[in-house]
Amino acid sequence: MKAIISDMDGVIYRGKQLIPGANEFVQRLLSEKVPFLFLTNNAEQTPLDLKLKLEYLGIRGVTEENFITSAMATAMFLRQQKERATVFVVGGGGLINELYNIGFSISESHPDYVVVSKTGNFSFETLKKAVRLIDAGAKFIGTNPDMIDPVEGGNEPAAGTLLAAISAATGKKPYIVGKPNALMMTLATRKLGVHPEDAVMVGDRMDTDIVGGMEAGMTTALVLSGVTTRDMIDNFPYKPSFVFDHVGQIDPAAL
């Protein structure tokens, strides 16, 4: 049986609404002892936040060890690049917490990096600071490229939208750590102790989850409960290994 690496937004929930079949899917993974991780481009929340969110939505049995966020991956990447650094953060507590955990300082004064993730507190003043710091030499990092996130009632702007604004103003492109960067996939398979060919990437986006899983050598399973619709699949030059309406239809033993 293959290990499962699953996205969250658009796969397990949309905003604050559980997707039908999601609890049954997770309980099947737990009861059948399938190794699994939630690999999310969400950088706003910590693994504890995500665990508590799942519990609030009615999903029990998951631990903090079952998560890797793009904030965690970004912190791991930056720690490999530099032992000590200062960072200007455009983002929330989840990202700031991970950067503090690796010993980095948060500062607006000549930072080594400007790190950008999704945040509801983005303003013109924040945009202006980020642009000026990057123009002054700070390296431009993005946690993930997602332009929109699925929420109840539709979609909302995500990290990629903020990155695009800063990129337009500076003329510089960010280095993006999250999916579809293979770094995220490598961290996940390494944490599970499996080879990529023995893992399945489950996601709702052809442009991040599916292409990232495919390039890492995993089996891929697209669910149609989030961003990508069935009509959109043919717009891409690659195909998922499986397509499901939602995760409740997935039998891990059949993948």
Rank of each mutant, 00 (worst) to 15 (best):
D135C: 00
G178P: 05
F38M: 07
N121H: 12
F124Y: 15
K51P: 09
F25W: 06
I4G: 09
V11Y: 12
Q17K: 15
R28E: 07
H195S: 14
N181P: 00
K191S: 02
Y113C: 11
S123W: 03
L133G: 02
E98Y: 04
Y175C: 01
I106R: 06
V90I: 14
F122Y: 15
T208G: 12
M147N: 02
A169W: 06
T119K: 09
T228W: 10
P111W: 01
T186R: 13
G15V: 04
F122K: 02
E32F: 07
Q27V: 04
L127W: 01
I102Q: 11
M72Q: 15
L54C: 14
D135M: 00
Q27E: 13
Y175A: 02
E64D: 13
A138P: 04
A3N: 05
M147P: 08
S225N: 12
L99K: 14
I5G: 08
K33R: 12
G15Y: 03
L183K: 04
T126W: 09
E152D: 05
Q45Y: 14
F236K: 11
I166Y: 06
K118C: 06
T119F: 10
Y175V: 14
G160E: 08
K16M: 11
F25V: 01
D149M: 14
A158P: 06
I106A: 00
A165F: 15
A159D: 03
I4C: 01
P145Q: 14
G21S: 03
A221V: 11
K139P: 01
G193V: 04
T170F: 10
M232R: 09
S225V: 08
S117L: 01
P237I: 05
V194S: 01
D234C: 05
V89M: 09
L224K: 13
S107R: 00
I141L: 11
T40Y: 11
A75K: 02
F124H: 05
V11S: 11
L255K: 06
I59M: 07
R84S: 12
R84H: 14
M76L: 06
P196C: 02
F77E: 07
D146S: 11
E156P: 00
Q81W: 01
D149P: 00
S109A: 07
Y13A: 10
N97F: 14
A22Q: 04
